[in-house]
Nucleic acid binder design. Sequence first.
DNA 1: GTATATTAAGATAAAATAGTCTTAATACCA
DNA 2: TGGTATTAAGACTATTTTATCTTAATATAC
Lengths: 150, 150
Amino acid sequence: MLLSKSCIYALRASVLIASKKNDGFITIRELSDELNISFHFLTKVLQEMTKAELLESYKGPNGGVKLARPANKITFMDVVESIDGNYMINECVLGLPGCGVMKPCALHDQWSVLKTDIINMMNEYNLEAIAKNRELQRSFERKSAQLANL
Amino acid sequence: MLLSKSCIYALRASVLIASKKNDGFITIRELSDELNISFHFLTKVLQEMTKAELLESYKGPNGGVKLARPANKITFMDVVESIDGNYMINECVLGLPGCGVMKPCALHDQWSVLKTDIINMMNEYNLEAIAKNRELQRSFERKSAQLANL
DNA sequence: GTATATTAAGATAAAATAGTCTTAATACCA
DNA sequence: TGGTATTAAGACTATTTTATCTTAATATAC
Ligand code: SF4
Ligand code: SF4
């Protein structure tokens, strides 16, 4: 797996937050219910995102979490790094310590190109765009469901 | 990490085997020494490759392992699948069960392109090519070491 | 046949990751 | 002020991955 499960949860949750238009706080309970993720586990994951200043949190009634910045200012990579660290940049397929351009492994030539593509995609793709895409897919899904009912 | 550690060991070992020109059996001890991998652990990993019929093994004196096919007939993907299974094909970044073209996640559009590139690379790149590349890098390394000694 | 070299297999241990549960801290509201 | 809603933090458990150790099986050579 390219990303840890925690990281995937973080992504799913933050995309969901971004896709909720209102900019008030959303309870983690609401998120965990909708995503079918353990509430306590998701809480921990989102705590890390809060520490990384991608989310803001607020306690008590009407509390919850919300994006700390506009959704288009939080990239895929931001989320990944907040949970999994910057392993994408430092480590690699072969995970050889201290490897890289000067001391490449036998796969470096082929892999580094793909790796760069992944990094670029993660840096360019942001929560707003992902949420938009999600909405498109949903409406497409609804439409094909209607068609199937004919 | 895209690949498990076992898988990385399998790759490193099989590339090393491929780069040894002789086609007799090579002891796992020799491989584990050269790669600095625990002998017992590597043994297990290579056992899986033997089961997957990528390697042949032979017990007793002059025994060891060797490639079951010519190095250019064993792809990067063959090795990966023998250890990590075909998760690359079935699973994904988000690892959502049952996802795919019909029910894509919000990242599918961007990710599937990169995923395909990775799969293609793994299918096209084989042990002979990787070993050749490794040799090139080694000789380059030797040359630059000589230069540094001037 | 006995000793030796080697992989195969399984039992166990250690470490990393994932998940659960409990308590504390904070904020609101009545 | 006291009760409730909510995140924060930490202890604990479970699972998976990685690593080690022991014993078995098999082949060779003398
Ligand atoms: S592909 Fe490059 S960065 Fe990755 S392990 Fe090999 S040398 Fe290191
Ligand atoms: S990118 Fe595609 S294959 Fe991967 S998890 Fe999303 S929908 Fe599934």
